[in-house]
């Protein structure tokens, strides 16, 4: 799974209310939610995103509630990958389950700057910062999670299992 796009930096402890405030939870459609992605930070945050862009955040990304609307809103905004220092664990699972690629890279996250152009090989866990000629590596995804991602998320994964 290969991705490339521009980095959008975010800080630490970005909570699920920042990613998608409760007042927008009246839909479960990712396109609708995507229009309000990060509205808890700034109402029109999503305007600066082009499809394929990548979020690069600090510690504990996605902390707070177990709402799946959060990864859906990010995908709905056209963002396929989030790179972070670390993720809150319920968000981490929800991300994979919804088909959002999450890469945890610790302090290396500080080497990436706003608007850097990134190239990602998710299966190998390689991130190339083309603006800097820098390659960062993270642990490759466990096989089971690769399986879920390659099927497009947990719903399809279980559906296939049930059909087998």
């Amino acid at each position: 799974m290969f991705f490339q796009g521009k980095a959008h930096k975010l800080g630490a402890h970005i909570d699920t209310d920042a990613i998608i405030p409760a007042k927008y939870l009246v839909s479960t459609e990712k396109e609708v939610l995507g229009r309000s992605c990060m509205a808890g930070i700034q109402e029109d945050w999503v305007q600066r995103i082009s499809p394929g862009d990548i979020i690069v955040a600090d510690k504990n990304f996605g902390c707070g509630s177990s709402r799946e609307h959060a990864p859906l809103a990010i995908l709905g905004a056209g963002i396929p990958v989030v790179i972070a220092h670390s993720f809150a664990r319920i968000f981490y699972r929800n991300g994979f389950n919804m088909g959002l690629v999450l890469l945890e890279i610790g302090d290396d996250v500080h080497q990436i700057d706003q608007d850097d152009h990134l190239k990602i090989d998710a299966l190998k866990g390689l991130i190339t910062d083309q603006s800097k000629d820098l390659t960062l590596s993270t642990a490759p995804l466990p096989e089971f999670m690769r399986d879920i991602l390659s099927k497009g998320g947990l719903v399809n994964y279980v559906r296939e299992r049930l059909a087998a």
Binding site: S66, R67, I90, R93, N94, N97, V155, V158, R161, L162
Partner: peptide, 18 residues
């Protein structure tokens, strides 16, 4: 432990999770 709704749906179906 807490999980998201789709993880819960999978656990309701399979009786297992990761």
């Amino acid at each position: 432990t807490g999980l998201g709704s789709t993880d819960i749906a999978a656990a309701m179906v399979l009786g297992r999770t990761w």
